[in-house]
């Protein structure tokens, strides 16, 4: 459960001094998005393309000096969620049947789709986690605003980031309070109490939302978050995007040669 993670810091490698950190956050977000789209839109079974992308991504991970153990740990946790979806693709029909038991069957096509989707998901997860690991969250939010993401959406993300720590703290306080009054050790009682805590957390969140809105109004908020100025792109940003686009194109072209 997310609320059990002790220290809440996503961007542990954001203070680096590498060429990747030298890029504007906006460029990094753009590169990550291009990479994810190119990977996800590649048709199934193009292993060569993904090999090239994976080599490029490895290069980037080494270049950015991101903490590899943290990166892999996060990808592993997220993969467990994706695993449930992936399992469904294994048992689809089509192609030659390799194994069957009752109505369950594994076919050659099922295996190919499973392999392709797994590789795609893994590459995308690695890229996104690298981005989050190496870019501070406020910079990331600014970058999204600069890339013309609707400002209300960015504001919602920003307050989610601001208040998740407060909520976790509040939940921890409630749990401590329950424990200090001898929270029942039976698991049913515990579930009941935790359920009530989550309920009261919802109500507190709502009330806090109202107070925050008052504070925003009293500093001149009119319903639209203030927009930020967008600085000019520098030459290294242009080079980074050009290099990435070249890599993506090479990956696609190998299948037409």
């Amino acid at each position: 459960m997310l609320l059990h993670i002790g220290a809440f810091q996503l961007d542990i490698n954001s203070q680096g001094n590498t060429p990747w950190h030298g890029l504007a956050p906006r460029t990094r977000v753009l590169c990550a998005l291009l990479f994810v789209f190119a990977t996800a839109l590649t048709p199934n079974e193009r292993w060569g393309t993904w090999l090239i992308y994976a080599v490029g991504l490895m290069g980037l991970i080494i270049l950015s000096r991101a903490a590899l153990s943290v990166l892999l740990k996060r990808v592993a946790v997220e993969s467990s969620f994706i695993g449930v979806v992936l399992l469904g693709t294994l048992f689809r029909g089509g192609g030659t049947v390799l194994w069957h038991w009752g109505w369950l069957q594994i076919t050659s096509e099922g295996l190919a789709v499973l392999g392709s989707v797994t590789v795609k998901a893994l590459l995308c997860l690695l890229m996104m986690n690298l981005l989050v690991l190496t870019t501070s969250i406020p910079a990331l939010l600014n970058a999204l605003a600069e890339l013309r993401m609707p400002s209300l959406l960015v504001a919602i993300l920003a307050s989610m980031y601001r208040y998740i720590g407060v909520l976790m703290e509040e939940f921890a306080t409630m749990r401590r309070a329950a424990a200090s009054r001898n929270l029942l050790s039976s698991s049913r009682g515990k579930r009941l109490v935790v359920g009530n805590m989550i309920g009261s957390l919802f109500i507190r969140t709502y009330e806090r939302g109202e107070r925050v809105h008052h504070a925003m109004l009293s500093r001149g908020y009119t319903g639209l978050p203030p927009t930020i100025e967008c600085p000019q792109g520098r030459s290294q940003d242009r080079w980074a995007i050009a290099t990435l686009v070249m890599l993506l194109l090479i990956g696609q072209v190998v299948y037409f040669l």
Binding site: A158, Y161, R162, R208, A215, R219, G220, P226
Partner: peptide, 23 residues
Amino acid sequence: FQNPDDQIFMPTVWEDITFGLMN
């Protein structure tokens, strides 16, 4: 406001202090 956690709603100190000015 009484509770600074209600008043400071932007992620960083700078963004929060400039919030009213941007408005």
